[in-house]
């Protein structure tokens, strides 16, 4: 997992990156302080939390798409993805900025989800004896559970490929690129990782759930920001279904190809 690998915290210990971390933290802090002051009311309101949910959703959507595109390089020569991973790992402060933004985004996404869920539970203390819905989609009704499982998966995924604590032996995989640079052998790590059927299965299930999550999320974030209407609802629905399917297919192709032996 090229990108995730780079975003990982493996070289957290080095002095240089520590400084960077502090710098970025200061920026983030003052930014959030500004936000806090200027838009306090906005983020305390129900709609404000929805905006947080939607905007963080947009960022995470862009990330997972980028992440997928990066990963699909596994189908090329091993050097391609290894060089790509190496490039990302050496972005320096940029890498840390990205990591922090992503972390903040995930936190914001979860924070708003938790806040909204608490409010929503509170808004209906007595539930119906008989429940039914007319049109709410399956995806929309399972956002909470799909979100939870995806979160669990992400944590595992980071431990697995980024922190490499699940299989510490991954840390010792190195390879030499055509130009002679010695880089971490991400290709081999991925192949090794996905040869484990259980891991692949968990991965596919989690990706499936994330696709379902996106299926409602994509149109939903546009609605929350006020950019959806009935005229574009039909095409938008098709786009979000199409995108979710493509996303699933692209991601699932990797472990399936590895298990089937197409990539080794």
């Amino acid at each position: 997992m090229g990108f995730a690998e780079t975003v990982g915290l493996r070289n957290l210990g080095s002095l240089e990156s520590g400084k960077m971390y502090c710098g970025v933290a200061v920026i983030v802090f003052s930014l959030s302080n500004f936000m806090e002051k200027t838009t306090a009311r906005l983020f305390r309101s129900s709609l404000g939390k929805k905006y947080v949910m939607a905007v963080s959703g947009v960022i995470l959507l862009l990330f997972v798409i980028g992440h997928l595109i990066g990963n699909l390089q596994i189908f090329a020569h091993p050097d391609v993805i290894n060089a790509y991973a190496h490039f990302l790992q050496n972005l320096g402060p940029g890498l840390w900025a990205v990591r922090l933004i992503l972390l903040a985004t995930v936190v914001a996404h979860i924070w708003s989800a938790v806040e909204l869920t608490i409010e929503n539970r509170r808004a209906r203390p007595d539930s119906y004896e008989v429940k039914d819905t007319i049109q709410a989609s399956y995806a929309s009704r399972t956002m909470r559970i799909s979100g939870f499982i995806v979160l669990a998966f992400i944590l595992f995924h980071l431990a697995h490929f980024t922190l490499q604590v699940v299989n510490p032996e991954y840390q010792d995989l190195y390879t030499e690129l055509a130009d002679g640079t010695v880089v971490h052998d991400v290709h081999t790590m991925m192949v090794a990782g996905f040869q484990n059927v259980w891991i692949s299965l968990f991965y596919i299930v989690a990706i499936g759930l994330l696709s379902v999550h996106l299926r409602h999320g994509i149109a939903s974030m546009l609605q929350s920001l006020g950019w959806r209407n009935r005229k574009i609802a039909g095409p938008l629905e098709k786009v979000s279904i199409g995108l979710s399917i493509l996303y699933f297919a692209g991601n699932a192709a990797i472990p399936l190809a590895i298990m089937a032996g197409f990539v080794s």
């Binding site: 129900s46 709609l47 409010e119 929503n120 989609s137 609605q223 929350s224 209407n229």
Partner: peptide, 26 residues
């Protein structure tokens, strides 16, 4: 509570008021 963009509201509305207005409010 908060809107989760399922549009059940619009589906049961006796006057079929569109969820587009929620978008407008957002």
């Amino acid at each position: 509570g908060n809107c989760t963009n399922q549009y059940e509201c619009s589906a049961v509305c006796p006057k079929s008021i569109s969820e587009d207005f929620i978008g407008q409010l957002n």
